[in-house]
């Protein structure tokens, strides 16, 4: 990743809302999603979602459970292939990028992960550099410096040598945050990033996000659903004007044209077990 683009579109629980002064810097938005459709387990989870995120933007996404926030994250970071629509990262179609290239543009803090293995914290954070290390190579000084920085910023350096299995839920989540920071990508996706965090670390998290944004404009504002500096946190508001526009900025909602929360009609009965397809 090039250091000069360290500006991040950080997103809590998803990531959207378009706009952006910063877009103009090199023409294409960092994340551009067009008419995205994703079916999971026979249900349409995302239906025609479009949004753009520019560099340096810090955007939050809120919505009821099952609204498709995580699915949108998965579609953007390449772990899920959309059924229709396109995702562009840094102006390039994601479908044409290797997983490695995607991982150099977008880092993700997952909602949950399998940390049942006794890896030391530092090793887990170092895995954030996977996309930079060649198969037959080893980590370089630059990789190690990135890992150090990430551990400092996520406040996990104090227990760098402890096995992740011995950490509390909140500490573990900070480790995953450090892992994502270590990748030093232009975009950072955070899926339910504060679920396990104590009150002391919630602002800390948001501050770190803000610090990684070049515009540095976003201010943290407490919220029960999202630590996004823009409590508008996009999306689900029926009137884009209401509370969605941060001071001095043009606000846009996702999905831009909808007047009702799209999830309402989308998640009817659970007749099909959601995991049914995966086996």
């Amino acid at each position: 990743m090039s250091r000069d683009r360290d500006g991040s579109a950080a997103a809590d629980g998803g990531d959207e809302d378009g706009d952006a002064a910063a877009d103009d810097r090199d023409g294409s938005p960092l994340i551009a999603v067009r008419d995205l459709v994703v079916d999971r387990g026979g249900e349409r989870v995302l239906n025609g979602v479009s949004l753009t995120v520019g560099r340096g933007e810090l955007v939050g996404l809120v919505g009821p459970n099952g609204a498709g926030k995580t699915t949108l994250v998965a579609a953007v970071n390449g772990t899920l292939a959309p059924d229709d629509g396109t995702v562009e990262l840094d102006g390039r179609d994601r479908a044409g990028l290797s997983q490695r290239e995607v991982a150099r543009l977008v880092a993700t803090v997952p909602q949950e992960t399998n940390t049942a293995f006794e890896f030391p914290v530092e090793t887990v954070v170092e895995m954030g550099r996977t996309a930079y290390v060649s198969r037959f190579g080893t980590t370089t000084a630059a990789d190690r410096a990135a890992v150090e920085r990430a551990m400092e910023r996520a406040d996990v350096a104090a227990f760098a040598d402890r096995p992740v299995t011995t950490l509390s839920g909140g500490e573990r989540q900070r480790v995953l945050f450090a892992r994502a920071l270590a990748a030093e990508t232009p975009a950072l996706l955070l899926d339910e990033p504060t679920a396990n965090l104590d009150i002391n670390h919630q602002p800390g998290r948001s501050t770190s996000c803000a610090a990684s944004s070049t515009t540095g404009r976003p201010r943290w504002r407490p919220s029960t659903t999202s630590t996004s500096p823009r409590a508008c946190a996009t999306g689900w508001c029926s009137s884009p004007a209401a509370g969605c526009a941060p001071p001095g900025r043009r606000g846009r909602c996702w999905p831009p044209t909808r007047s009702t929360p799209p999830s309402a009609s989308r998640r009817p009965s659970r007749t099909t077990p959601r995991w049914g397809r995966r086996w």
């Binding site: 490695r100 995607v102 992960t113 399998n114 090793t123 895995m127 996977t130």
Partner: peptide
């Protein structure tokens, strides 16, 4: 041994591994 690093990342789950840049 050349795949040892990938194997480590795969231990965290395939979705995570892909998000971290491994062609799972």
């Amino acid at each position: 041994f050349a795949y040892a690093r990938d194997l480590n990342v795969l231990l965290l789950g395939e979705t995570d591994a892909r998000a971290l840049g491994v062609e799972a």
